[in-house]
């Protein structure tokens, strides 16, 4: 991959990686750090990364960086602080989108990841499996469970019939 192809990946996917990180971390500065580190890693490996796999490489790298970051944050702040952070923004009563995003934070990290990759990026199950380092059948199980949980929360919040 040359500098031109790399820069195209910056122009095309930096926003996507940023949104992906922001959904996980709920903090703009942390999300920016993840994006910078992700692209830095890609540039370090740019000679061996195939352009056609560029997007996949970006999300795989970002996902692992996010997991490492969350582990470090948990070690530093403790589990309670993380839960408190996730519960900070209760959704307003009648906003479906807001409630859905709030519900997303209630999902286990892996379920959140597969749903985000599926809905935000439109990845297929096998692509998500490659990024998250799990099997395709596991991806399917996680997505199905996540949808059921999200449905339950929406019904509980009486935002849907």
């Amino acid at each position: 991959m040359n500098a031109r192809a790399y820069n195209q990946l910056v122009d095309t996917y930096a926003d996507n990686v940023y949104r992906f990180a922001l959904k996980h971390l709920k903090n703009e500065m942390d999300a920016k750090d993840i994006v910078q580190s992700t692209y830095l890693k890609m540039w370090d490996k740019h000679e061996s990364v195939d352009v056609s796999k560029g997007k996949s490489y970006l999300f795989t790298t970002a996902y692992h960086l996010i997991l490492d970051f969350l582990k470090a944050r948990k070690r530093f702040h403790g589990e309670e602080a993380i839960i408190e952070l996730q519960n900070e923004d209760n959704p307003s009563d009648f906003d479906l989108s807001e409630t859905l995003n709030w519900a997303l934070d209630k999902l286990p990290e892996i379920q959140k990841t597969v749903v985000l990759l599926r809905d935000y990026e439109g990845y297929s199950y096998d692509e998500i499996a490659e990024i998250a380092g799990i099997s395709e059948s596991q991806v399917k199980v996680y997505i199905f469970r996540a949808r059921k949980t999200l449905k339950s929360i929406l019904i509980e919040k009486e935002l849907v019939v």
């Binding site: 910056v10 122009d11 949104r19 995003n101 985000l116 809905d119 449905k151 929406l154 019904i155 849907v160």
Partner: peptide
């Protein structure tokens, strides 16, 4: 219908600021 509503749509206004 509810399952269809569980599909997330990205907020395209969220952009990486210093590309």
């Amino acid at each position: 219908g509810v399952y269809h509503q569980t599909k997330l749509t990205p907020d395209l206004e969220i952009r990486y600021p210093s590309k």
